[in-house]
């Protein structure tokens, strides 16, 4: 803070709070994150349970689960993302308005989870869209989802408005839309978006036939 501590305390006693605009802006944004209703599989049930009376996600500002992506701030990808569903997920992400966040809930959304060997399972949603918070678990408890929302709130609190440290949506040249994969004959095309996620081993050069021959 650019203001003297003692002066701030003195002003507070008179009922005047002095905060940076950035803090106020982030406080408003993080205290009312509206998720999109987007449950894919089992983790969706725990997401709904987190929204019910016992765990009550509404305390953290996630009051209304919007049905449409246009009105939502947060996409909680809860459940296994299959290759058939992946283009739809990316399209929904593109349809959300900036600033937007993604929580990957559960092992399946992070990396494919227990179904990683599947021919139809996408090994993690962060192959195509950027993810802000990952929650491990299968399924993670509702308390874990609340912890994730709190972590996201802390992340939002740390975002800056000043030049040089701005997040993506302040950059007029950066696009908020990510390319949507299309259905290929054997797999999605492209299988991974290399701008978002880099596979640890560059195995794209080795083809399937060469592996079988070895």
């Amino acid at each position: 803070m650019a203001i003297d501590e003692k002066l701030a305390l003195e002003l507070q006693k008179h009922g005047i709070a002095v905060v940076p605009v950035e803090w106020l802006y982030n406080w408003g944004r993080r205290s009312s994150i509206w998720p999109m209703q987007f449950g894919l599989a089992c983790c969706a049930i725990e997401m709904i349970a987190a929204a019910t009376a016992r765990y009550d996600l509404a305390r953290f500002g996630a009051e209304v689960f919007r049905a449409t992506p246009r009105q939502a701030d947060l996409m909680i990808v809860a459940g296994t993302v299959t290759k058939k569903m992946a283009p739809q997920v990316v399209r929904l992400y593109n349809q959300m308005a900036e600033p937007k966040y993604v929580i990957a809930m559960g092992a399946c959304a992070i990396s494919g989870g227990p179904f990683k060997d599947g021919y139809n399972v996408l090994k993690g949603i962060d192959r195509y869209i950027p993810v802000d918070v990952h929650i491990p678990g299968c399924p993670p408890r509702p308390e874990a989802l609340m912890q994730a929302v709190i972590t996201l709130q802390q992340k939002i609190a740390g975002q800056h408005l000043t030049k040089g440290q701005r997040p993506r949506w302040y950059d007029p040249t950066a696009s908020a839309e990510y390319p949507v994969p299309s259905y290929g004959a054997h797999d999605l095309e492209p299988p991974v978006n290399n701008n978002v996620y880099q596979r640890p081993h560059q195995c794209c050069e080795v083809t399937n036939e060469e592996i079988i021959k070895k």
């Binding site: 021919y119 054997h186 081993h201 195995c203 080795v206 399937n208």
Partner: peptide, 22 residues
């Protein structure tokens, strides 16, 4: 599976596309 898919995955000789991760 999606309509453009050409393989029949439950056959015993199906090879999934190479998608190795560390």
């Amino acid at each position: 599976m999606w309509d453009e898919f050409t393989d029949h995955p439950m056959r015993k000789d199906y090879r999934p596309p190479l998608d190795y991760e560390w």
